[in-house]
């Protein structure tokens, strides 16, 4: 029996064999194929070119293509491994692999660190932390006075910056996360374990070529 995934997907830019992606990620070949269904849906929502553009990513996340969000921008940028402004299928699978329940915790912690290292300096700085808190307040309509924001940022920074050099490095981040494990909650997507159930149409209609 032929494989619909291979026949249709080979023409897509950034196509990669599911067996290769399965070997490099926590996903099985069936799961990679099910992810292709999700990828197709997102990548064809505005421009049907087999690539996820930022507006398509925003549309999938917020049901609104124009809703800008600092954190969604950061996630998009980290998924865009080639840094060419779009997410290809291979990038989508490799990046989502970090969110798999079976992915190593160290990978999740490192991903979150890069997410919060807004200026790519290798450190999370106080200014970045405050910028992120303000972005969250803006997004949530939560109102906190500047004094309260300063207090929250100060307290957190002192707690995390154990070396006291005014910036949070990866080692400090790892230690901080071990004390506040809830911070890693959104780095695991239970859905990814059931992805073949969520997108079963492909799996039922095809078999994998050896």
């Amino acid at each position: 029996m032929g494989c619909l995934y291979s026949k249709n997907a080979r023409n897509v830019p950034g196509y990669e064999e599911p067996t290769v992606l399965a070997a490099e990620t926590p996903f099985t070949v069936d799961e990679v194929q099910a992810l292709y269904e999700l990828f197709k849906k997102i990548s064809s929502s505005i421009i049907d070119d087999g690539l996820i553009h930022k507006e398509e990513f925003q549309l999938a996340l917020f049901r609104n293509r124009n809703r800008r969000n600092l954190f969604a921008d950061r996630v998009f940028d980290l998924f865009d491994l080639k840094r060419n402004g779009v997410i290809e299928f291979g990038e989508f699978v490799r990046s989502l692999g970090v969110f798999h329940p079976n992915a190593p915790m160290a990978d999740k912690i490192a991903f979150a660190f890069r997410l919060y290292d807004l200026r790519h300096t290798g450190y999370i700085e106080r200014e970045e932390l405050k910028e992120m808190v303000l972005a969250l307040l803006h997004e949530s309509d939560l109102v906190l006075s500047d004094d309260v924001v300063e207090m929250i940022v100060d307290k957190t920074f002192k707690d995390a910056d154990t070396k006291g050099d005014g910036r949070i490095d990866q080692e400090e981040w790892k230690e901080f996360v071990s004390r506040y494990p809830s911070l890693m909650k959104n780095m695991t997507l239970p859905y990814l374990k059931d992805i073949t159930l969520a997108f079963p149409s492909f799996v039922l209609s095809s078999e994998v070529e050896d």
Partner: peptide, 26 residues
């Protein structure tokens, strides 16, 4: 938990932009 008892990263992690589960909603 109220924002005042959360640390800054806990507050940030509630962002909708970090909740990728919505990618899987049909």
């Amino acid at each position: 938990t109220t924002p005042l008892t959360m640390n800054a990263f806990e507050l940030i992690s509630t962002s909708q932009g970090l909740n990728l589960s919505s990618l899987f909603e049909k």
